[in-house]
Write a protein that binds this DNA or RNA. Structure first.
Lengths: 155, 155
DNA sequence: CCCGGAAAGGTCAAAAAAAGTCAAAAAACA
DNA sequence: TGTTTTTTGACTTTTTTTGACCTTTCCGGG
């Protein structure tokens, strides 16, 4: 018998495949009820099986009417992209490095000139000065979110 | 099922769109009756979905015959955009406020859906968590920078 | 003219309805 | 047996919903 966590993982992935969708919206409480487990078990599944580096992205809303959405990024088979996201997760990035990276994305046509300018203005030293010595960490987290968003956008 | 608050929001916006008007006049009590909820629920909707930075302005009259009016604001030229930047750029900004403001720029076509998603992802709590206490200051600076860039890009 | 009641809308805080965090306990594994 | 993964539950945070009480305005009678 597989673990509960794996069965929940399978359930969610099957659900997406069946509906031929790259995203599902679920209620944590309902799902916990289906598997008669504590709600926090669901968080464990999300944290261990649906991480960004694994090609999934989760967004959620708390409060009355809250729920969460699991989005399958169009890279589940693109190891290079996964590695890139993993590399930038929880790391640091200077402005120069980030700028160079964005420049490559621009050259490759992943982003256009306007997007390049917007992103650059937001990761500039000026914009992030209030973050003090944690500036490079914030910048890395921002770049990671940009990558995920780009993956979500092009489909 | 979406929340009551969201359904009321949609109802009001649809109403404006349908009539192709930039303002509607409503009675709090009537609206509450339509959705069979307490009247103060309407205030909650106005406070969370129709704030100035979200591009709406609400005026109301109490007393017998009282009612409220929701006016949709629009940015029509460069100067208004500049005024908006001035009005919105404080030294701190919560994610909620920023999101509301960006939603407005999206509704008005100042930015497109992709730009909205990119910017939102970069100012999210997740992206800025490393900034800790100073998160709201960083966000304010980022918003200011991005607005200036949009202006330079001659929207 | 003044007053009091009725007919609005406003405020604020508590309750309810979600989801998130974290660390201890249990189970599986090597 | 020691380590890693999974499971559980107590506590936290966020968002929405509700209700009791407050304020403003209008109108009619004295």
């Amino acid at each position: 018998m597989s673990t509960l966590a794996s069965r929940i993982e399978r359930y969610i992935k099957d659900m997406m495949d069946a509906a031929d969708l790259n995203s599902v919206e679920l209620k944590r409480k309902d799902l916990a009820e289906v598997f008669s487990c504590v709600p926090s078990q669901i968080n464990y599944v999300l944290e261990t099986r649906f991480r960004d580096e694994q090609g999934y992205h989760v967004v959620s809303r708390r409060g009355a009417g809250g729920c969460f959405q699991i989005i399958r990024l169009e890279v589940t088979d693109d190891q290079e992209m996964k590695d890139l996201i993993a590399a930038v997760s929880g790391s640091e990035m200077s402005f120069r490095t980030a700028e160079g990276f964005l420049g490559r994305l621009l050259e490759e046509g992943v982003i256009n000139r306007g997007e390049y300018m917007l992103i650059t203005s937001m990761i500039s030293k000026e914009a992030l000065s209030a973050a003090g010595e944690r500036q490079d960490q914030v910048r890395a987290a921002m770049i990671k979110n940009v990558l995920i968003t780009l993956l979500r956008m092009d489909y």
